[in-house]
Amino acid sequence: MSLALRDVSRTFGGVRALTDVSLEVNRGEVVGLVGDNGAGKSTLLKIVAGVIQPTGGDILVDDLPVSFHSPHDAREAGISAVYQDLALAPQRDVVSNFFIGKEMLRSGFAGKVLRRLDRPVMRQRVVSELNRMKTTLPNIDAEVRYLSGGQRQSLAIARAASWCERVLLLDEPTSALGVAQQAEVLSLITRVAETGIGVLFVSHQMADVLAVCDRIVVLRLGKVVAQINAKTTSPEELISYITGAATPLNTDTTEK
């Protein structure tokens, strides 16, 4: 498998935010992560993204144990995240935003010595990446502040997916969007997975999770209480696990 967590725990002072969490994300698979407020979803994502470190347990990438000391380490291992604030520069155009920190220079003297940006190639790359993910933005020369919320979210996801080789982490990417824009972002998530990337997707919206996920992991008070096949479950079942009304019974137990 692409990414696996084995008994990952994290405490904040006395607070046990995560206790012995084990889960897997395979290539091309969308895994949903649901749970009540404070269940530990964001904490889990931050650990996988290298933003914070676990206090126990192992992270495996392609079956090899890794430890991430920074987001940079995680990115090196092919794991990228889209955060809720999206990290876009509103007064720059789509092309600039796509390449933050990865700007391309011209070849030869103009690039090596004069450090000149290769805007035509950067622009071309954005067009082809958006095509590859079958996403359209109305105008890639527009300043990002003139895009809608859904378009911005799509841009942030497409950007992260474009630079990501293994697993893409999404923390509530649809929470601030209208219905049509949610659909737009959800179908982008599906297409990102179709390119072979694994997606770990946090959401409070049961309908969204059921629509795009292959598997759903339910966290409750920092523990995994269920891992369910998304094709055979219902919003009611999910909610009963989230609230603690149901206890782990007919779940696909993780093989150790």
Binding site: A87, A89, R92, E103
Partner: peptide
Amino acid sequence: SQTRFGERTYLLGDNPDAVIRAGV
């Protein structure tokens, strides 16, 4: 207006967090 240094100067002023998170 033409170099990576200039581009990052604009980006840094526009959203410093985005630039920092990109590892610059």
